[in-house]
Design a protein around this nucleic acid. Structure first.
Lengths: 116, 116
DNA sequence: CACACCTGCTAGCTTCCTTTTGCATGTGCG
DNA sequence: CGCACATGCAAAAGGAAGCTAGCAGGTGTG
């Protein structure tokens, strides 16, 4: 979930940026921005293998930038349709400064929810 | 050069996103957003080694997010001051779609050391 | 029933990123 | 002159990311 544009948490921000910082994933988002598509078709359209596309889609989905929905085509085939989430991410030094304070430290003990 | 918020080239965008998609570099930008700093002092402030900081600073500088300026302190020491560039990066599926079209393809005739 | 299309997963290789360690240089001060 | 502070770069190691190849399963049509 979450679609806060102005003040994402540091970890979320890193995840979203890492997800977008890749030519293939940029093209994937671009393709899905025009229209939703299913995995195999999208792979053909982009000229990459299904396995590779799936890895990238998973990363984009983990960042909440795209979502999947399993559907049945008219001829009974199971199709997994992906579509972009209408995110709006604005990046400035100030916004980054705010997000950086919520960054999880690479410490040994890491408790989501057990902090200030 | 660059710093256009609405329509960066695909390669520039990937470079900027990759530069920001890292907890350390996020903290570096955050620190520099408050005030400019020189390498050694910033390393102490962030609690990381100078060598590591320099690598990260170089990546940020390569993306055009920070700039360096060599100066002399009053006691004659050479200090390399870094400061953030006031960038404003807005990311939406549409903007990404536009940027994706300007992406450099991993075209042929370009594989240094690629042998199989 | 074989073929074409859809889905997913894993093993293994390669390449890049991150980080540490160490060296080399220059300046001011007691 | 040696210590403290500043700068830089390069080699090496560990880990994460990217990609391919291959396997397994499902449904509908000729």
């Amino acid at each position: 979930m979450s679609s806060s544009a102005s003040s994402p948490t540091g970890d979320d921000l890193v995840r979203a940026l890492a997800a977008l910082a890749n030519p293939h994933r940029l093209r994937i988002v671009a393709a899905l921005a025009r229209e939703r598509a299913y995995v195999s078709g999208l792979a053909r359209q982009l000229g990459i293998s299904r396995a590779l596309l799936q890895v990238h889609l998973r990363k984009l989905a983990a960042a909440g930038l795209v979502t999947a929905s399993l559907e049945l085509s008219e001829d009974g085939k199971a199709m997994n349709y992906y579509e972009v989430q209408p995110f709006v991410l604005t990046l400035t030094p100030e916004i980054i400064a705010a997000a950086a304070e919520t960054l999880t430290v690479p410490d040994s003990a890491d408790q989501p929810g057990a902090n200030r």
